[in-house]
Each structure stands twice: as C-alpha cells, then as structure tokens.
C-alpha cells in the first residue's frame, strides 16, 4: 500500500518559487491494483509519480511506502553515454545483484530485444528503444509496484503486447502505476484510475470512470 498524505509541490524557478503544481493530494493506492494516472499536460502527473517513487520530495506532506516500489521509468535511470548493457550492469549492481549479474543481464537483453543496439550508447536510441530498455530493466527486479511514465506505452504494438503479458504473468505479485494518453492502453493495463485536476487528485475505482471524468473536464 502506498499512502499519499496532503502532498503539495512547487518548484523553484529562476524567478523565485513557482506556482503550486500539486496542492493537497491524498491517496491510498492499494498493492495488486494497477492504476492509471490521467490529466492534462502540465497537470503534475510526472511530478506525482516522481514523488511516489521517492526520487523527488513534496514541498509539504508525505508519502509512505509499505511495499517495494520501483524507480520511476520516465527517462531517468539511464546514463546516455553508457551502452544499454553497461546501464543494465550498473542497475543490477546497485540493487545488490553482483552474484547473478550475467543471468539478469541475459534476461534484460532478451526482454528488451534491442539486438546489437544493446551494446551501443543509450544516446543513439530512439524513444521507443529507451522505453523497451527501461521496462526490461525494471522488470528484472521484483517490485510490488512498478512506476511507469509513458515508458510502457511508448513501445510499438509488439512490445506493448509483450509488456502486458509480463504484467499479466506477474499480476498476483505486482501492480503498475502508469501515465499514458492512449485510452486503449490505459484500459488494457489498469483497473483503477487517478484523475489529476487543478492540483488535486480524485481516485476512481474503475479506470473507465476516471477516463469519463477526464473527458468531461476537457470539453
């Protein structure tokens, strides 16, 4: 379970403090339920994901994680000058998997299906390839909740199918918190939804209801 308690966030900008991006988010996100995060561009979806993932901090309020939460897969975690393999090795090592490194790297390589690009620097990757690698990397570790910002949705159709299968296989042990703008993808991955609007979050038990609320707000 992840508890989000009265989370406020604003960033410092060159001209002092910026405006509030999040203003009082209260959520209880149960484990074992995949959740789609919906909202306009700039609604604070990525910010909230980063705060839930523990790599950014709320200006006010707090997040309690009672489960193993993955790092947010949004662009972070990959060093552009290193190859896919080097990034994979680094990620395995900092998670304490030195002993079974080879085996895990093999799993990541197989899952990402990057071919010879696995040994090329990440800066040469397309966004879809980066998404594949990021997804493969986080799936190589056992988390209770995986956090994905567009990453899962950025791959092509074959990869999305594969990612979905990986999640279906892991459905009893893991869930997903994801951001996506594609309704079909959200529906196929998630059961519940969070709708972000004006810095507040509304929890919907069913993803369809969250999508309906979102559609209503942009009309």
């Amino acid at each position: 379970m992840i508890l989000v308690q009265d989370v406020h966030k604003r960033y410092k900008t060159k001209r002092g403090v910026g405006k509030w991006v999040l203003r009082g988010i209260n959520l209880v996100i149960p484990t074992g339920r995949s959740v789609g995060l919906i909202g306009k561009n700039g609604a604070g979806k990525s910010t909230l994901l980063r705060i839930i993932g523990g790599v950014d901090y709320p200006t006010k309020g707090k997040v309690v994680r009672n489960c193993r939460v993955s790092w947010p897969m949004n662009g972070g975690g990959l060093e552009a000058t290193l190859t896919g393999r080097q990034n994979a090795k680094f990620t395995c090592r900092i998670h304490g998997h030195q002993a079974d490194l080879e085996e895990r790297i093999q799993r990541i390589e197989d899952f990402a299906e990057l071919g010879t690009y696995f040994d090329e620097p990440v800066q040469t990757y397309s966004s879809g390839m980066k998404a594949r690698l990021q997804f493969a990397l986080s799936m190589a570790f056992d988390f209770d909740v995986y956090i994905s910002d567009e990453a899962t949705a950025a791959g092509d159709a074959t990869f999305v199918k594969k990612a979905q299968k990986a999640f279906d296989d892991a459905v009893n042990r893991a869930s997903l918190i994801m951001v996506a703008h594609n309704e079909a993808k959200l529906k196929s991955f998630c059961q519940s939804g969070i709708f972000l609007y004006n810095g507040k979050a509304i929890w919907y038990e069913k993803i369809d209801d969250a999508l309906a609320a979102y559609r209503e707000s942009i009309q």
Binding site: G53, G54, V55, G77, F90, I94
Partner: peptide, 11 residues
C-alpha cells in the same frame, strides 16, 4: 555527471 542515476532512490 551522474544525474541520471538519482532516479534510483538508493543513489
């Protein structure tokens, strides 16, 4: 030069 790695909580 290690910015990317702060995506991991433990770094």
């Amino acid at each position: 030069s290690n910015k990317a790695f702060f995506a991991f909580r433990q770094v």
